[in-house]
């Protein structure tokens, strides 16, 4: 544990990068929440839009996965 300032910086960087996944979480929650409020207003249209819901969630999630990937790279590959 003692010593290496570079390692300290690395771990701090990993932690900061992991915050990025929170953004993805907010994004996915936003997608799901808006879908739900729309679906409750017009339930008959909801079933036809689940594919769109998953596509939207996938796009929102992908960016969080990118930050996860950066965290992994920082953690293991640097």
């Amino acid at each position: 544990m003692e010593g290496n300032i570079g390692e300290l910086g690395q771990y701090i960087g990993v932690g900061l990068t992991a915050i990025g996944m929170g953004g993805a979480a907010i994004g996915v929650g936003n997608v799901a929440g808006n879908f739900l409020s729309g679906a409750l207003r017009n339930p008959s249209a909801a079933a036809s839009q689940t594919a769109t819901l998953f596509i939207g969630m996938a796009f929102a999630e992908a960016l969080g996965i990118f930050s996860f990937l950066v965290a992994l790279l920082l953690m293991f590959a640097v």
Partner: peptide
């Protein structure tokens, strides 16, 4: 994104 999404989720 297509590949990282799947692999990232699994990892």
């Amino acid at each position: 994104s297509h590949s990282i999404r799947l692999a990232g989720n699994m990892i």
